[in-house]
Design a protein around this nucleic acid. Structure first.
Lengths: 101, 101
DNA sequence: GAAAAGCGTAAGTCAAGGCTTACGGAATGT
DNA sequence: ACATTCCGTAAGCCTTGACTTACGCTTTTC
C-alpha cells in the first residue's frame, strides 16, 4: 500500500517537478533550487516528503547532500498502474458484454 | 502533459479510493457514496474532478449517472511511468559508473 | 579556531481545497 | 399534474499544506 504515499507525494506539482529533475541525475539541494521558482528551504521540505515516501535517497558529500531517485519506487508505481490496467480493462470488457444492464 | 492533471487528481486519497472502486466496474454516484465515509455531494465533486482530468467517463441511464474509468487514461499513466523508469534507470547507471564524482 | 559553504528546521502566513448542508433541476413512475 | 429518485451546484466552514524568513547545525577550508 506504499504506492499511495508515493502518489500523494507526486500530487503536488512543485514536488513532482523536483522529482522529474532528479530523474535526470543526482543533484544537490542548492543546484535543484537554483533552477526553480521557489526558495531553497521549500525544496528542502519537498525533498523530505519525497524521501519519507521512499521516492528518493540521500547521501552526503562534504557539506552537500546529494539526492537521487530510488529506481525501486518507480518500479513500484509502474507495477501499480500495470495491475490497475488489467483490472480496469477486464471490467471494461465485462461492461461492454452486458455483464450489467 | 495531461498526465500531470491525472496524477494531481489521484493525489487526494478519497478521490483515489473512488477511482479504484470504479476500476472494478461502472457504478452510479449513490452506489459509490454508500460505501464511503463521505457524503454523496462530496463524491459527486470528486467525480467531476476525475472527469475533468480525463480519468472517468459519464453516461446517463434514467435519472442515474453511470461513471466508468477510461482505460486510455490508465494507459497514459502507465506509459508515463514506463518512460520515467527508462530515464531514471539510465541516470542511475551513469551515476554508478562515476559519471560524476 | 574562525570563517564559509551547504542544509535542515521552526515559526508564521495565506490561499487552496475537501467536506457539509441546503437547494434546484432533470428524468421516471402513478 | 404530482411525487420520487437521483444527482449537480452554491455557499460556507475549516483544516491542510505550500511557501517565506530567520536561525542554527555540521562539515570543510585557511
Amino acid at each position: 500500500m506504499t504506492y499511495g504515499t508515493m502518489i500523494e507525494a507526486l500530487g503536488a506539482p512543485t514536488r513532482r517537478a523536483i522529482f522529474e529533475k532528479l530523474a535526470e541525475g543526482p543533484s544537490s539541494v542548492g543546484a535543484l533550487a537554483s533552477g526553480m521558482p521557489v526558495s531553497r528551504p521549500a525544496v528542502s521540505q519537498h525533498l523530505k516528503a519525497l524521501k519519507d515516501a521512499g521516492l528518493v535517497t540521500e547521501k552526503r558529500r562534504g557539506t552537500a547532500r546529494i539526492y537521487s531517485v530510488d529506481p525501486k519506487s518507480i518500479a513500484e508505481l509502474r507495477d501499480y498502474f500495470d495491475r490497475f490496467w488489467d483490472v480496469a480493462l477486464d471490467a471494461y470488457k465485462r461492461s461492454l458484454e452486458g455483464g450489467d444492464a
